[in-house]
Amino acid sequence: MRHNKKFNHLGRTASHREAMLANMAVSLIMHKRITTTLAKAKALKKYIEPLITRCKEDTTNSRRVVFRYLQKKEAIKELFGEVAAKVADRPGGYTRVIKLGTRQGDAAEIAFIELVDFDENMAKTPKAAKKTRRSRKAAGKAEAPAETQATEAPETKEAPVATEEAPVATEEAPAAE
């Protein structure tokens, strides 16, 4: 029975699993995004998130604890330098796993795992306007006046009419020769 055995063993011995996760963590820190199977990406997420939390406090003890897991000086420098500066105000959730589909050869589920603060494309995308749920009648009535205004405006060639509230200034554009 598997009572209280929560982590995925990934079909490997303990030493092989630890070495693989350490190597994948170093690759993720250095490259900011790696592609792997979904099971490995989820296991790596559980492995690296506590290390990133540890790097927010740059002390000798923190560096020693993280070095015990990673065993690469370059990765430690990158983690405590650039990565720690970006995640300093984030309260958790430093990585993102996105599914990519299945692999051609063995139909394994493929995903990429990335550090959230280092993805420029996701950071720059504006959030879409939230759509509200309305009945069809309300949506039809709201769209009808907009459509009539849009169709009537191009057909009429009259000069804009100034009202008392907001006078409209008309300017003639010089003819292009």
Rank of each mutant, 00 (worst) to 15 (best):
V97F: 14
E120T: 03
A108E: 04
T95L: 13
G105I: 10
N121W: 15
L100N: 02
E109N: 02
P126Y: 14
A128S: 13
L100P: 00
T125E: 09
A128Q: 11
D106P: 00
Q104Y: 11
F118M: 01
K127N: 14
I113N: 07
V97T: 08
T95D: 06
A108Q: 04
D106S: 07
V97C: 11
K127E: 09
V97P: 00
A111H: 04
G93Y: 15
K124N: 08
K127W: 13
E109D: 06
V97I: 15
K99Q: 04
A111S: 08
R103L: 12
N121V: 12
E120C: 05
R96C: 09
K124C: 10
A128D: 10
K124A: 13
N121P: 00
A123C: 08
A108D: 03
D117P: 00
A111Y: 03
V116C: 08
V116D: 04
L115Q: 04
V97Q: 12
T102L: 15
F118Q: 01
D106W: 07
L100E: 00
I98P: 00
R103F: 14
T125D: 09
Q104N: 12
N121Q: 10
Y94T: 01
T125M: 11
L115S: 12
E114Q: 14
A107S: 07
D117L: 08
T102F: 14
P126H: 11
I113L: 13
I110T: 09
G105N: 05
G92Q: 07
N121S: 13
T125L: 12
G93V: 12
Y94W: 05
E120D: 06
F118L: 03
V116H: 08
G105R: 08
A108S: 06
G92M: 06
E114R: 11
P126C: 08
G93M: 14
T95A: 13
A123M: 09
I113M: 15
N121R: 14
I113K: 11
G93D: 10
F112G: 04
T125F: 15
L100A: 02
L115D: 02
L115R: 06
A107D: 05
K124G: 07
E109Y: 01
A123Q: 05
I98E: 02
E109C: 02
R96F: 11
T102G: 08
K127C: 11
I113W: 15
A128R: 05
N121F: 14
A111R: 01
L100S: 02
G93F: 15
D119A: 05
D117E: 09
V97R: 13
A107V: 02
A107Q: 09
D117K: 04
R103V: 09
R96L: 10
A123D: 06
I110C: 09
G101E: 01
A111T: 00
K99D: 03
L115K: 06
T125H: 12
G101Q: 03
I98H: 01
A128C: 06
G101I: 01
P126Q: 08
G93K: 13
Y94Q: 01
T125G: 08
A123R: 04
P126A: 07
A107L: 07
Y94F: 13
A107T: 02
T102H: 14
D119Y: 03
A123Y: 12
Q104T: 07
R103Y: 10
E120W: 09
I110K: 07
